[in-house]
Simulated scan of single mutants.
Amino acid sequence: MQKAFKMKLYPGMAREYRRRHDWLWPEMVEMIHAHGGRDYSIFLDEETLTLFAVIEIEDEALWAEGADTEINRRWWNYMADIMDTNPDNSPVSVDLPLLFHLD
């Protein structure tokens, strides 16, 4: 199943966001795959600094369990200085409903 959501960057942080993802930690990749995630893309609306993410997941519950991993919490802490976050440093994220799909 596809999951889509949006997040928000701070002004001037697009280059840094890309740099950090270009060097995505191998442990983070392993965690994403272990929790059923694959074919993950993140797009940027440069006018609004909104990030649009789309990922294929096996199961919503399995995917949600990834949030409680140590590596995921480290990643959130690492990214907190460049994007909108909640008090626990998780990114402020809004799920987007699927309105159309063409295979």
Rank of each mutant, 00 (worst) to 15 (best):
R73K: 15
D39A: 11
D22E: 14
E56W: 02
E46P: 07
Q2P: 03
Y40C: 02
V54T: 10
Y10V: 05
M31G: 01
R38T: 12
N86R: 12
Y78M: 06
M1P: 08
S90K: 10
Y78W: 12
V94L: 14
L98N: 11
K6G: 09
Y78N: 05
Y17V: 02
D95C: 09
E60N: 04
L49G: 00
N89C: 04
E56D: 15
D39M: 12
T48H: 04
E46M: 08
D59R: 03
P97Y: 10
E46W: 07
T50G: 01
V92N: 09
F5K: 01
D103V: 08
P26V: 13
D84L: 10
E58Q: 08
H35Y: 10
S93E: 11
W75Y: 11
L62G: 05
K3E: 15
A34I: 10
A67Y: 14
W23T: 14
N89I: 00
M83C: 08
H21L: 06
I82P: 03
M31N: 10
M31S: 13
M7D: 02
M1E: 14
D81C: 03
P91L: 03
A80Q: 13
L49N: 05
H33E: 15
I55S: 00
D68K: 14
P91E: 04
F43H: 11
K6Q: 13
H33Y: 12
L102I: 12
H21T: 12
S90F: 05
V94H: 12
Y10L: 15
